[in-house]
Computed example of a mutant assay.
Amino acid sequence: MERVTHELASVLGGVVYSLDVQGHSSVLDDPLLVTYPRTRLPSPVSFGRLKLPLPSSQLLSLLLSPRPLHGHLPSPGVLLILLLARLVRPRRCVTAHWHCFLEPHRGINGWLYGVYQRLALLLMPLLCGVVTTSPLLAQELNRCGCPQQKVSVLPCCLSQQQEQLGLALPLPQARVGAPLRVVFIGRLDTYKRLDWLMEALSTLSSPWELAVVGDGPLRPHFEHLAKRSAHMFSRVRFLGRLSESEKLEQLGRADVLVLPSDRSNEAFGIVQLEAMAAGRIALAFDRPRSGMGWVGQLSGLPWSQSPDGLAEVLQRLADQPALRQQLSMQSRDRYRTLFARGVWLKHVQRLGYAVGTSSV
């Protein structure tokens, strides 16, 4: 979500307001080098993980401004700001960016987020428009009561540098007899389901290699699983967090990226675009209320896009190097057609965002 906000703000200018949920308002140096002004809104009022802004001069300035306002959800605090801005200036252009549908956990926090999402869906028609990241999420917003004419699709994008570096990578060659090279990139936590990927790979009759990029609380658990599932032809490497250049190097070595997330909270993986620009196959599940499966869909690779079908599609890719090479070209072509930065900029222009639009 932060990268989407950054790319929009870089193109449109305006002021970016962010809720200071981690209490960094006293930090003078901004760790992200940007070309647009940024302002932190103090938000010390907390209900579990729900953060709401307190009255402040920054908040008052944001609410009274006549500039168009675009807010990024899910966030109860941002939703509150959008509604207040609409109330204070009924003619002001106030829009929302619906990044994902939440799947609340059990417990008080999960209950609060469930209430928030139901409330947000009820209130979306009151705004001037809603932008979401895939046709699947747009259809779901329509089904939940948001008028079709108010919903627009703007897929995520890569930065200009990321795109150039990815497109410059050579396509993988058909390596007969060589292991299938799989890469996983993400936080090592429960919903990423790295365990499902390792289980699927352990059933293959062909050799494979898995590079795991990322870190998290479940890394020791996954490392233990890797030792149990590995066999003489295969190996799993845990690389931890890598720099952008090191991550690109791992994509360059891979045949396929797999993101086996089991929740709709992850609706659009930017790393899928990085893999596709590099000409690598990107596999993800077709989950309800998620566009992850849609992003990397290839006409030349029909499969169930379900956990039960993961082992079968990986076996097919491992056994058919020529198919992998063909699909690599299709993946890059799909990126250029749907997600390239030039295509994204045209989408932004068609949405009619005004230069100087503020965002929160």
Rank of each mutant, 00 (worst) to 15 (best):
R3L: 08
T5C: 01
H6G: 00
L8P: 06
S10I: 08
V11N: 02
L12Y: 05
L12N: 02
V15W: 09
V16T: 02
Y17N: 08
S18T: 14
V27Y: 15
L28W: 15
P31V: 08
V34M: 08
Y36R: 03
R38Q: 14
L52G: 11
P53K: 06
S56Y: 05
S56W: 10
S56A: 07
L60I: 12
L62T: 13
L62N: 04
R67D: 05
H72L: 11
P74Q: 07
P74G: 11
V78R: 01
L79I: 05
L87A: 10
V88D: 03
P90G: 08
R91G: 12
C93K: 06
V94C: 01
L102N: 06
G107D: 07
G110H: 04
G110Y: 07
Y113W: 15
V115S: 04
V115M: 08
V115N: 03
Y116F: 13
L119C: 12
L121F: 12
L123I: 06
L123D: 01
L123S: 06
V130W: 14
V130D: 09
T132W: 01
T133H: 11
A138L: 04
L141F: 08
L141D: 04
C144V: 00
P147L: 14
Q149C: 05
S152V: 01
P155H: 00
C156A: 06
L158R: 03
E163W: 04
G166M: 03
A168R: 13
L169M: 13
L171P: 02
L171M: 03
P172M: 03
A174K: 05
G177H: 03
R181L: 00
T190H: 00
L194C: 06
S205A: 09
S206P: 00
V212L: 12
L218I: 05
H224F: 15
H224K: 12
H224M: 14
K227P: 07
S229Q: 14
M232V: 15
F233D: 12
F233Q: 11
V236T: 12
V236S: 15
L242Q: 08
E244T: 13
E249V: 08
D255W: 12
L257C: 14
L259A: 14
L259H: 11
P260E: 04
F268Y: 10
F268C: 06
A275E: 02
M276P: 07
A278K: 15
P288A: 13
M292C: 10
G293V: 01
V295K: 03
Q297P: 01
Q297F: 04
L301I: 05
W303S: 15
S306T: 10
P307K: 04
D308T: 05
G309Q: 01
L314R: 09
Q315I: 00
R324Y: 06
M329F: 05
S331K: 02
D333K: 02
T337I: 02
F339W: 06
W344S: 05
K346T: 07
H347W: 13
Q349C: 09
Q349W: 09
L351W: 11
A354S: 04
T357I: 15
V360T: 01
